[in-house]
């Protein structure tokens, strides 16, 4: 073996390594940037999906905002109460309990007949570009059904059912609001868990028209308006609208609605909440 060649090779490699190591060591000292370590800690707690629900540019942006400019600690809806609590612990502060939020689609499909056939990009936003007919269904307020919200959801909480309507899985939904942003018909809304009575229709078509084309559309019959003991629901421009300032979530309007437009989610949500709480208890014990 050529020991001389070998030693030259080894020696030069070691030399280069030593020089580069010294340069790097000096550089890391010289150009050291002091980072508040709490930023990193907060970022580690955040879910890291960069959904934008907090209004900051991504999770790292929110973490920095919490530490440096004292942004509110409860803005992360995917992280929920637990996340806010952990952040508060790092920041040495107290937070109020955060109530979970869920998305909801204000349209139930209702077997609306089609006006025409469509062939093109299957994206709800593309279907409302002027000249694309505005969705194949006769109702021009309701869900178009191309699943843009389902594709946009960062948590896989929205699936399209066989009627081409979005179904939101509240187990997975974090209330981040991506689906609200992308829906061209503005059908999705985010609301807190305890609010359980909703009007699932947005049609301003005249009652007779809606009655003809949709099984679950508001026909502006005003039965809810008459039934409500708190004067909290009114038919405005052919559509029942709940005034949540007055609404006590009694659910009387739900029972009188002939079209099943108004829903009360209390039972399911209560069951889920209980299940969640028992699970949490078991985890602590």
């Amino acid at each position: 073996m050529d020991w001389k060649a070998l030693s030259i090779a080894l020696g030069s490699m070691a030399g280069i390594g030593a020089v580069l190591g010294i340069v790097l060591a000096w550089g890391s000292k010289r150009f050291f940037v002091k980072v508040d370590e709490r930023v990193e800690q907060v970022e580690a707690i955040l879910p890291g999906v960069n959904c934008g629900a907090c209004g900051f540019p991504g999770c790292s942006g929110y973490a920095e905002a919490i530490v440096t400019s004292e942004a509110t600690m409860t803005l992360c809806s995917p992280g929920g109460a637990e996340c806010a609590h952990d952040i508060a612990r790092i920041m040495g502060a107290e937070v109020e309990a955060v109530e979970p939020k869920y998305a909801l689609t204000a349209c139930q499909g209702g077997n609306v007949p089609n006006r025409f056939d469509y062939s093109g990009v299957h994206d709800c936003r593309a279907a409302v570009v002027p000249g694309m007919g505005g969705g194949i269904k006769h109702c021009t307020y309701g869900c178009i059904g191309y699943g843009t919200c389902a594709r946009a959801c960062p948590f896989g909480a929205i699936t399209m059912n066989d009627k081409q309507m979005p179904v939101i899985d509240e187990e997975k939904c974090t209330g981040c609001g991506r689906c609200v942003e992308v829906c061209p018909r503005d059908l999705n809304r985010i609301d807190r868990e305890s609010r359980t009575v909703f009007v699932l229709c947005t049609s301003h078509d005249k009652g007779a028209v809606t009655n003809k084309i949709c099984d679950h559309g508001c026909i502006a019959c005003k039965k809810c308006e008459q039934e409500c003991p708190f004067d909290a629901i009114h038919v405005i421009d052919n559509l029942a609208v709940i005034d949540y300032e007055k609404c006590k979530l009694c659910g009387k309007c739900v029972d009188v609605c002939p079209k099943g437009v108004i829903v009360n989610l209390r039972k399911e949500r209560r069951a889920r909440k209980q299940a969640r709480e028992t699970a949490a208890k078991e985890a602590t014990t």
Binding site: R115, D117, Y118, S119, V121, A126, G133
Partner: peptide
């Protein structure tokens, strides 16, 4: 039921 035409994007 009226005839349903096809809507496609241009061209």
């Amino acid at each position: 039921m009226a005839k349903q035409f096809v809507i496609t994007p241009s061209p």
